[in-house]
Amino acid sequence: MLKDITIGQFFPGDSLLHRLDPRMKIVLTVLYIVLLFVAKSIVSFAAVTVFSLILVFLSKISPKLILKSLKPLLFIIVFTTVLNIFYVKGTPIFEPIDILGWQFTITYEGLLTAVVMVLRITLLITTTSLLTYTTSPIALTDGIERLLSPLNAVKVPVHEFSMMMTIALRFIPTLIEETEKIMAAQKSRGSTFSEGGLIKRAKALIPILVPLFVSAFRRAEELATAMECRCYAGGKGRTRLKQYKLCARDYISLLTVIAVFAATIAINILLQGIVFAI
């Protein structure tokens, strides 16, 4: 079902992560992603993992939801694991296994790379999910708009982009619901969507797409009128309800992430060649 997708969803709350300035959260997430690629040794990965678990705990978001966000990527994770375990050359852990004439060797290095890759992907998804789970889409676009606002000087229409994002985010659930309704209605008239070849299937989409587009255009028109009635006249002279002011917790978070970052680099250097660096 279309409704099961949790990526990009927002879960309102009042945790420390919820209260962080969205601009800071975006910057920190970017930093964190870089960090994931900087970390080279198993020790630093352990540290980063612990740090991520602390973040999940701080967000007060149920770990179940976090796991759910990983579900769509399960295939990629499993695929990477298998690939790495069997294809990275190095010291075998045990004698090659013979299955139907195929020789399977699991190497120490392969196992390590697999663990690291899985951790990397998992942590990457977890933290970016945490960003969207704890930041309302509006705050997120707001944050992006404000971070990018210097670009206004070079005539990049930052406000217009963020307004488009805001409206898109607002209407995605509405349009998903509408799609489901239209599908059910066309099924009631005998439409089938999962039979026949590619061309037949593509054709079967017409009864869904046409009404969907018609409705999207109607909505757009009505929304435009409603926005005009509420005195919308572009980004010029607009103020915002939410004022973002960096406060102590934002700076502390920044310092923490920088500290973790520095520690990771230090570990990389200190443990070079000692503990399994990759």
Binding site: I182, A184, A185, S188, I206, P207, P211, V214, S215
Partner: peptide, 9 residues
């Protein structure tokens, strides 16, 4: 369905 005119295509 409700508002069936929304399914005309």
């Amino acid at each position: 369905f409700q508002y069936p005119e929304h399914q005309l295509f």
